[in-house]
Design a binder for these strands. Structure first.
Lengths: 95, 95
DNA sequence: TAGATATTTTGAAAAACATCTAAATATATT
DNA sequence: AATATATTTAGATGTTTTTCAAAATATCTA
């Protein structure tokens, strides 16, 4: 779960896709135009993001619209805050 | 940079190492004892974490002590907050 | 229904990754 | 100096990931 999530985020192309989707939904084709990789490759990346629940897809006629699923980011944020705050089991030492 | 960072986080063993280090510094050997993988493998994981600046290592005699480098988490947190808040270009700040 | 467009699936090849054993390096102890 | 302990580096192997071209699927339009 965090596994698929971080794996999905570990690729720069995929992170850029997420950045693009912040500004608004896009079709697979529109996303593909911004990159120098084939459509099948793009499709693969979108699928990885989908498996990680980072994006949602919805068919709109011929097109498929992709959008950000921000709710999942909460989980990752929680993980990070935990690491940084050092407050997992309330038993930590000072200094 | 975010690249190495997320790649480092995308492995469950490595995330568990980070969790262990929250409670305090540990030597490579102490970390290795908690896992069912060989010491060379562990060493490899520690190196990946080091390349990503997620941990620091300091030789202490025969031992090498590993510790969390929390400062790097700031960068990732910033990235996440940006994605979630939809605020990329320094404009629009209120709230 | 035939043809055009949008997207995904399949199958294959190359690159990256995780893991192991064996060997090397560094330090400590006798 | 010889031996023991802690850790890393090298080299090999199996697995996963990225990528592409070709084929398949879905929808739209004429």
């Amino acid at each position: 779960m965090l596994d698929a999530l971080f794996k999905a985020l570990s690729d720069p192309t995929r992170r850029e896709i997420l950045g693009m989707l912040r500004q608004g939904d896009l079709t697979a084709g529109e996303i593909a135009e911004h990159f120098n990789i084939s459509k099948p490759s793009l499709s693969h990346h979108l699928n990885v993001l989908k498996q990680a629940d980072l994006v949602l897809d919805e068919r709109k006629g011929q097109y498929i619209n992709y959008s950000l699923n921000t709710s999942v980011f909460q989980d990752v944020l929680a993980w990070f805050v935990n690491i940084v705050n050092n407050k997992d089991r309330g038993d930590n030492v000072e200094k």
